[in-house]
Design a protein around this nucleic acid. Structure first.
Lengths: 124, 124
DNA sequence: GTGCCACCTGGAGCGCGCTCCAGATCAAGG
DNA sequence: CCTTGATCTGGAGCGCGCTCCAGGTGGCAC
């Protein structure tokens, strides 16, 4: 299995080195392998996990909840709880999508209104 | 034209009293009328403006950009710039919507994966 | 060996967007 | 009047999610 240095992982995942270390400190990331000298060594499983973290983070999940999810993945008897957590998050994303679309319409209405005040502003 | 106390406005707009004062301080809200004694008095125009601010804020516009928008509305010759700013924000919302939908699929895939591991977990 | 850059640790600091506080004032009911 | 609850001001503080720093070590190229 290929391995990767912290710098490579930062490039691949978009998380900064500091963020990777921070995530490990707070328990979002555990058991990152080390060289005998103490430098971190990542593998493809780590990359996959970081992909999930990025997904959860970028959809607005708070760190406390990501930690709860990370804790659940350490006990294989928690499948249902994981599903429940992700489903609740999925519903949250649904609400967010609907809200965003609605607010977008409000903003578009405002743009149309400004345009109606100055039709000349439309042309290039 | 009806007028409203700060408390009523907090109820109507969902912004806290502190946030209303904060927004006035930083220039997002200007010329709020006052009683002779110095208490704020809001009107329907203020409510409409706060509605726009809420919309921009809740769609992720940073305060610095909201301030720029507020500044533009103080000069009626800036219609085009306002349209440009809102259109850029509209595109930003579009990108966000697309990203959210994509990440949602990733999460749903994960849910399906967990379900496939434990079909019994499905039933009530 | 010797550079030299990447990486290590613990802990302090930061930027954003509020939120809270103390102590004073206002305004409306009784 | 007097009480009482809403509001006022300036400024400090907070919670989140990183981000930066100092001082030291690792590890590969030459």
């Amino acid at each position: 299995m290929p391995t990767y240095s912290p710098g490579e992982i930062a490039d691949k995942t978009g998380f900064s080195l500091d963020t990777l270390r921070y995530y490990e400190r707070i328990g979002l990331l555990d058991d990152i392998a080390r060289t005998p000298g103490g430098q971190r060594v990542f593998d493809d499983d780590d990359i996959a996990w970081l992909g999930i973290l990025r997904c959860l983070r970028d959809t607005g999940m708070p760190i406390a909840q990501m930690r709860r999810y990370a804790d659940l993945t350490r006990d294989e008897r928690t499948l249902r709880e994981r599903v429940e957590l992700l489903e609740e998050h999925d519903r949250e994303i649904g609400r967010r999508l609907a809200e965003l679309a609605e607010q977008r319409e409000h903003i578009r209405g405002k743009i149309r209104y400004y345009r109606s005040l100055d039709p000349a502003g439309e042309q290039e």
